[in-house]
Design a protein around this nucleic acid. Structure first.
Length: 342
DNA sequence: TCTGGGGTCCTAGGACCC
DNA sequence: TCTGGGGTCCTAGGACCC
């Protein structure tokens, strides 16, 4: 008997949370992103299904969303609100087994640990409990490993249950383009197409060495395994340990003067220091990111002489990294990231 | 389409050492 | 000093995901 992995994904999570606390928004096109002002620089975090009907989707510039759907309700991103609801959801999911959290609105559940021979029934129970506890709908994907479960969810949206197994993998996905796979984006799909690999089946039947020549010894064979539906079924309930914390900010008006850039990097470094302190582990390296107005981005880092959580030391390191930027064109975005040791 | 912010992981190349 | 090969560390960048 296969060991089942379940993947739970909340439907239009952020928009749904907003509708929950403002029921008058139900049924309206709702777009959440930036600070809620669609005339500013920013992108859509989530659009309700009603807004999606107008071609508004995650990642779309807010200004474009406004053009496509002028009557939409635009709301600012309210992180703490989503985190609070997410915590409720995850707590509910833990009633069913080990939970591996993937983000605010996604998790794997190892329901097989309970000797589950009817994962569909478990999936329906999960949906019922999540709705009872939070008033939110979710979709559940069932698979023999995490990859299959994750991709199955896409076929169950919204509010449904779908299953993907080694048996059904190629029937369902064989003719799909490679970017349907989890971990394969537009860039990788394009490179694969140059090797005359277009579909999931094409990739699955290519020798791993062929793919490794183009993508390296780790990613190459991994791509072929993913195309075959092969992945880990281990659901880890271990607490997440952050590798880094950062802050970045896109300016409404490009910074024209380098002294402003210096000031802003110092400010961001102090904000990041607050998170490093909260993390309870010292940082070992600081990385500064600069995106110039023509949308060209580069980064420079500086390893700390010794691990530290001290705000002034982190700010000083950020300025050392910043000094390595010699280009003085207008700056659109600045970022500071602190990395923890291994 | 004038293109966010939070992250993670992998790779390639150079430095350095034996 | 015309000049190998391997290992490791560091850094910048690429790609992806939510």
């Amino acid at each position: 008997m296969p060991r089942w992995v379940l993947h739970v994904d909340l439907d239009q999570f952020i928009a749904a949370v907003e509708v929950l606390r403002r029921p008058e928004l139900a049924g309206l096109p709702v777009v959440v992103g930036g600070d809620g002002d669609p005339s500013k620089r920013g992108v859509v975090a989530t659009a309700s299904y009603e807004a999606r009907a107008f071609g508004v989707h995650s990642g779309l510039p807010l200004r474009t969303a406004l053009k496509r759907c002028p009557d939409a309700v635009f709301l600012p991103v309210d992180k703490p609100a989503y985190e609070a609801v997410s915590d409720d959801v995850m707590m509910t999911l833990r009633e069913f087994g080990t939970v591996e959290v993937l983000g605010w609105d996604e998790a794997f559940i190892d329901a097989g640990a309970a000797g589950d021979d009817d994962p569909e029934a478990t999936a329906r129970s999960i949906q019922r409990r999540v709705r009872e506890a939070t008033d939110l709908d979710c979709t559940v994907g069932i698979g023999e490993n995490k990859l299959q479960a994750k991709l199955a969810t896409g076929f169950g949206k919204p509010a449904g249950v779908a299953t993907l197994t080694y048996d059904s993998w190629f029937d369902v996905l064989g003719e799909s383009s490679t970017d349907a796979l989890w971990g394969v984006g537009a860039k990788t799909a394009k490179k694969l197409a140059e090797l005359d690999i277009h579909t999931v089946r094409d990739l699955a039947t290519t020798h791993p060495d062929t793919v490794a020549k183009r993508f390296g010894p780790t990613i190459g064979p991994w791509l072929v395994r993913v195309a075959r539906g092969v992945a880990s079924a281990r659901v880890s309930g271990e607490a997440w340990l952050a590798r880094s914390h950062g802050k970045e900010f896109t300016y409404q008006h490009d910074l024209e003067h380098w002294d402003e850039v210096v000031r802003e990097v110092t400010r961001l470094a102090h904000e990041v220091a607050g998170e490093v302190v909260a993390e309870g582990r010292p940082a070992v390296r600081v990385v500064v990111k600069v995106r110039y107005a023509p949308f060209f981005t580069s980064t420079h880092g500086h390893k700390l002489a010794e691990p530290t959580s001290d705000a002034d030391a982190l700010a000083a390191a950020a300025l050392v990294a910043l000094a390595r930027f010699t280009d003085r064109r207008p700056v659109r975005l600045l970022g500071v990231r602190a990395e923890f040791g291994a």
